[in-house]
């Protein structure tokens, strides 16, 4: 047993982090917020070139030949920086839809009752007839509502989405800690107050438990373990984002601060999948 990242996995994670820092920094994030619905195709191709979509295709088919654990690490990084676009759908379509693997083709699919990125995509796997636009709460995810019935997410989509939630949870924890170190009130950093400190500690605890669950589910592929990962990662992402708002005070309530983007995306990811209730039933049935 060696339930830690291998050197290769660490290098992969670092590589993706560096790539995203260069290609999708904070300015790019805010620019994306200002032009809702626009997908940066150049960035998409760059992701394709880096193997983001072809990651799990066999090398013989032009893929990278890696597995679900590596994909989870990559999607965690995407979640950290709020990378926009139908990432999961395109990644899952890499073996079947021409151009998806290289980032030439943007593929979207239904996610529960929602259809994200309909207008910006080249290929739509779901039946989009009757899709009605809604003004998405998340400025980084344009949404259409679909008439039912809805197909559930595949287990792989569940896990990759949970990985994005994990990345977001880790990031909002860092943002809260950084603000708590810098912002001073009553003559000291607010992070010296226990009430703030304990919020931050809880954020880390949620993140680390979700991490263990998501990584383990990626290794075992077990459906019950995947359900546990989904439940804990959704909760970590949403609750950490809320606590991060709280730690930021009035600043946290502004459009300017990035934290609302994490909260809204976490809501979209959690809301489109199984409800917490349904996931808990799956976990109960397995007892």
């Amino acid at each position: 047993m060696d339930f830690q990242l291998t050197d290769d996995q660490r290098a992969l994670r670092q590589g993706v982090r560096d790539l995203l820092a260069g290609r999708f920094d904070r300015d790019a994030l805010r620019a994306a917020v200002d032009v809702p619905g626009h997908l940066d195709r150049e960035l998409w191709r760059a992701l394709g070139e880096a193997g983001f979509f072809a990651l799990r295709l066999p090398e013989a088919d032009g893929g990278v030949g890696l597995g679900l654990p590596e994909a989870v690490l990559v999607f965690e990084e995407a979640g950290r920086v709020l990378l926009p676009g139908p990432l999961v759908a395109t990644h899952l379509a890499a073996g079947t839809v021409p151009g998806a693997a290289t980032g030439e083709t943007v593929v979207t699919d239904a996610d529960g009752e929602l259809l994200p990125w309909l207008d910006a995509s080249d290929v739509v796997l779901a039946d989009a007839s009757g899709a009605a636009p809604l003004r998405s709460v998340d400025p980084l995810t344009p949404l259409h509502r679909l008439p039912g019935p809805y197909a559930p997410r595949t287990p792989e989509a569940v896990l990759l989405t949970a990985a994005e939630q994990l990345g977001s949870a880790g990031r909002t924890c860092e943002m809260a800690v950084q603000h708590a170190r810098e912002r001073e009130q009553f003559g000291q950093p607010i992070g010296a107050f226990q009430a703030v400190k304990h919020l931050c500690a809880q954020m880390l605890v949620r993140t680390e438990l979700a991490r263990a669950a998501v990584y383990a589910a990626a290794v075992t592929g077990d459906p019950v373990e995947t359900a546990a990962a989904e439940l804990l990662a959704d909760e970590a992402a949403v609750r950490n984002a809320r606590d991060c708002v709280q730690v930021h005070g009035g600043m946290g309530f502004t459009w300017e601060a990035d934290v609302h983007l994490h909260l809204k995306r976490a809501w979209v990811r959690a809301g489109a999948g199984r409800t917490a209730r349904e996931t808990e039933e799956v976990l109960a049935a397995a007892l």
């Binding site: 830690q4 669950a213 990584y215 546990a228 808990e280 799956v282 976990l283 007892l287």
Partner: peptide, 18 residues
Amino acid sequence: RLGRLNAEFRALWRLTQW
């Protein structure tokens, strides 16, 4: 509630292994 505890303890086991 029992389902949620199943998620908790499975994850706590994995965190132990981690």
